[in-house]
Simulated scan of single mutants.
Amino acid sequence: MTTVYEAAGGYDGLRQLALAWHERVMADQVVSHAFSHGFRADHSERLAAYWAEALGGPAMYSERYGDQTAVVRMHSGNGPHEEMDRRAISCFDQALADVGLDAEDRLWQVLHDYWSWATTSVMNRYQESADDVPARLDLPSWSWDGLRDPAS
């Protein structure tokens, strides 16, 4: 069986998804607020590398850009933001359609489940302060069956 990474088109497919998602969130009046402080010009490439690693592909993010702790810290300390999370997930679902995935497709569902989980748990766990994020977090790995046990 292929990995989710391979089924999504590898890095190039995930990069297209990241570009589509970024375009959607920048057009959303609520979610775009998260980028109001600015963002890196290579945001979509970095996001695609992160997804590649999380979805069973090569360790592109960890080898090129940083670790999970830095990612979680970047998303922490902003208090609760349930509406923003819901809208970010909606933008992701729309981006899945933008890159040609159908909501009836298993890959669409797996990617939706991954994004929803990551948005509402991993990136939302330390709402009070980025200083609460522990060091040396492992980048979570997601498969066709959901979250993989880091020990496996």
Rank of each mutant, 00 (worst) to 15 (best):
M1Q: 12
V4K: 03
A8F: 03
G9P: 07
G9C: 08
G10S: 01
Q16R: 06
H22E: 08
E23W: 02
R24N: 11
M26Y: 03
A27W: 12
D28A: 04
Q29M: 15
Q29S: 08
V30A: 08
V31I: 12
S32A: 04
H33T: 10
F35V: 12
S36E: 06
H37Y: 07
G38W: 10
G38T: 10
D42M: 07
D42N: 13
H43Q: 14
H43K: 09
H43C: 12
S44N: 01
R46K: 15
R46E: 06
A48Y: 03
A48M: 02
A49L: 04
A49N: 11
W51F: 08
E53K: 04
E53P: 02
A54G: 03
G56W: 12
G57W: 05
G57P: 02
A59F: 02
E63H: 11
Y65V: 07
G66V: 09
G66K: 07
D67L: 07
D67V: 03
Q68G: 05
Q68L: 13
Q68R: 14
T69L: 08
A70E: 14
V71G: 01
R73Q: 04
H75C: 07
H75S: 13
S76N: 08
G77F: 05
N78G: 14
P80H: 10
H81F: 05
E82Y: 12
E83R: 14
R87P: 03
C91L: 09
F92G: 00
Q94L: 13
Q94W: 13
Q94C: 15
A95T: 08
D98A: 15
G100N: 12
L101K: 08
L101S: 06
L101D: 03
D102Y: 15
D102R: 07
A103E: 12
A103P: 01
E104G: 12
D105R: 12
L107Y: 06
L107C: 12
V110R: 11
V110M: 08
L111H: 02
L111P: 02
D113Q: 03
D113R: 05
S116W: 08
A118K: 05
T119E: 10
T120Y: 15
T120P: 11
S121Y: 09
S121G: 02
V122N: 05
N124L: 09
Y126S: 11
Q127A: 13
E128M: 04
S129E: 05
A130F: 11
D131H: 14
V133K: 00
P134Y: 15
A135Y: 09
R136P: 01
R136M: 11
R136I: 07
L137H: 08
L137T: 05
P140G: 04
S141G: 05
S143G: 11
D145T: 15
D149E: 11
D149G: 02
P150R: 09
P150S: 09
A151L: 10
S152P: 02
